[in-house]
Nucleic acid binder design. Structure first.
Lengths: 139, 139
DNA sequence: GTCCTTGCAAAATTTTTGCACAGGG
DNA sequence: CCCTGTGCAAAAATTTTGCAAGGAC
């Protein structure tokens, strides 16, 4: 694997992602980074997020929506996905009792990670659903 | 919600998906269904899989890969995703002790489902990785 | 007959890539 | 300096949609 350089683009992408607790999509992060670096290109954001994810500096969340989302918080924690709007939130670790680690054995596979994920409705979508304005989409 | 009709297309899509244990992508299932119904269109497969998923007749697996995969087995069970090739396999329920159900409380959300997912390497990719031919892609 | 569904193709969305030039170590 | 990284734009890949015709109930 070739060595990676800490370019300005890469540093800013990382900084902005770590500021957020919103698990943005590439587009969202791109818009944000662009305010600090107007000439950056979308392709660069894609390339860097993938690289940073490989290095373990950020976490790729592909679950639950169409578009991939990223998380700047690499400490182990779980996520909940709103089935209606696709929003992602962190789950307080207290919500789920200890997760078995290396104990898991699955035939034909080498397990590298265990993830617990939750689906649900966020408050905003819950309220709208009660008014009959439902419309699941981001499942 | 309008009533749904059991058309030939819908029935065949469902049948083929239930035959498989491979959690196919839309394209894969499309190819399969096409052998029985050569004139079916890709759009129809997309539309029907979404409908069937809403009705709970199939399960949408969006995690871990770029393309969505579907599962014809609606009995609760977990999945493991190969980080290299994107393959998905069922996890024997014995691998993970009881999953807490309604017990979970997450502030700001109404939880509707808990999922445990595993990441790892399948045997084929494991072998290739050992030979130094690695190349993660489907994470 | 009604109106949900389909096939087809075009469009929209999201992601990847080729290439010449820039800039980090 | 060398070689990775970037911007730009084009291309690829995946998903959605409009519309007229077809078919389930």
């Amino acid at each position: 694997m070739p060595k990676t350089r800490m370019t300005n683009q890469r540093r800013i992408i990382l900084e902005e992602l770590r500021k957020l607790h919103t698990h943005p999509t590439v587009d969202e992060l791109y818009a944000l980074v662009k305010t600090r670096m107007p000439h950056i290109s979308l392709g660069t954001v894609y390339r860097n997020l993938d690289l940073l994810a490989e290095t373990g500096k950020v976490v790729k969340l592909s679950s639950a929506g169409n578009m991939r989302r990223f998380d700047g918080n690499t400490a182990p924690h779980h996520h909940i996905f709103c089935k209606v709007c696709g929003r992602v939130a962190d789950v307080p670790s207290s919500a789920f009792p200890s997760v078995p680690r290396e104990s898991v054995q699955i035939p034909g596979f080498t397990v590298t990670a265990v993830r617990v994920e939750y689906d649900g409705l966020c408050e905003a979508c819950m309220t709208r659903a009660e008014k009959g304005e439902v419309q699941e989409q981001a499942s």
